[in-house]
Design a protein around this nucleic acid. Sequence first.
RNA 1: GGAGGAGUCGCGUAGUCCGGCCGAGCGCGCACGAUUGGAAAUCGUGUAGGCCCCAAAAGGGUCUCGAGGGUUCAAAUCCCUCCUCCUCCGCCA
Length: 432
Amino acid sequence: MLDIKRIKENPEKVKEGFLAKEIHCQEELARVLELDALRRDLIFETETQKAEQNKVSKEIPQMKKAGQDTTAIFEKMTQLKAAIAQNDEKLREIEAEYRNLMLSLPNLPDEDLKPGGKEANEAIRYHGEARVFDFAPKHHVDLCTDLGLIDYSRGTKLAGSGFWVYRGLGSRLEWALLNYFIDTHLGDGYELVLLPHMLEYQCGETAGQFPKFADEVYKIANPTDDRMHFMLPTAETALVSLHRDEILTEADLPRKYISYTPCFRREAGSYRSDERGMVRGHQFNKVEMVQYTKPEDSDAAFHELVGKAEALVRDLGFHFRTVKLAAGDCSASMARTYDIEILIPSMNGYKEVSSVSNARDYQARRGNIRFRREETGRPELLHTLNGSGLATSRIFPAMVEQNQRKDGSVVIPEVLRKYLGGLEIIEAQRPR
RNA sequence: GGAGGAGUCGCGUAGUCCGGCCGAGCGCGCACGAUUGGAAAUCGUGUAGGCCCCAAAAGGGUCUCGAGGGUUCAAAUCCCUCCUCCUCCGCCA
């Protein structure tokens, strides 16, 4: 959520920010300002009435004690009460519309971002070089099937298109990746958090999925209870709500969290033919990094997170590039995002394997997440950042494709071998 | 699933039966000050947040005693719904 003061003070600047994101909210902005004015007038009027009500109310016991007649004053109070009730009702309506609109407005992009969409993204650095094959490399679906790592058809049998089953060594490889990520983060002083995988509405509202992007998540209806749960689309959704409605102490910041969770996404209508296999499933495993920081520290934290994601990708032996996303390619809640992209031989061009973002105070305002600044003694909104560190769903296929040998076997990256009993190569095996 | 109990200002509690003197007492914690060579101890003072008015500060107002609604001139206190926690019983990983 944006600061209403920021909108009021400089609506042109806000408009400009939205345009950079290629989002057109002119009407919403105008309406928000209109509602805010209405709201304030109404609050002022109602509170004046309430002050009168309280004042008179305090006089009543004394009048009674003095034996005075209270009939006239009771009548007046009844009228006042009715007027207040009417205003309160009006105010409720206005504030509901106001809050809903405010929640639907996206975050503003940082000023140094290029305006426009994907085409304006900018690769800011490269690491290593793409592998050149001296044979025709196999597609990861074939490799994983031939090596018995992934069972696509049985995944589909169990849960439909977009699901798969890890088998045998495939499961162990997946687990090795996750352990490698987790161990690295633990070494960097992050706290590992294991979370509920089903969340209540408010988590989605704080993180930014609700109300606007509700279609991207799986909702769970409970027949005996009208409270909705949804499957978390990313651990960020839960981690950002961890300290919702809290005031953290300044000395406690930054908070550095990681969590492993499966992530559930509907991905409605987004399937593309070059995304055959594990690249865009409805369920995938991810280790997520989240930081809560003081506002002045969030830029440093952002670079720390980018660096951590890069190190993971690099140490798995990948060539990658880091891309600074243009304003319009950042998601609605984020002020800034860098993607780390690798080449997956079977796919055209670079594909995102990690996305690191700074939400600044956008999520904190939605979730009322603050810290008490020692200098002033007052609570202040903090900044939230998140980054994948990492999701396996693209790393896994990229790894088997990139590390394949002519004979169909796959070399295991060194950093993973200790999780696999020292295994170095996955040999082709008979299908089962 | 059945029966009962409870949620109050960072923590612990008083207040709820009998509505107004309770936005709320006390203890602990914390901050500042006094005392001290310094500290402990002691004493004193202070100690929530949101919103509105105000250019800002100062100040004023308003709302919040788990959440929401109701009764009333007036609700921490009475009524209703919901949430959470605890105890006991049952059932099951």
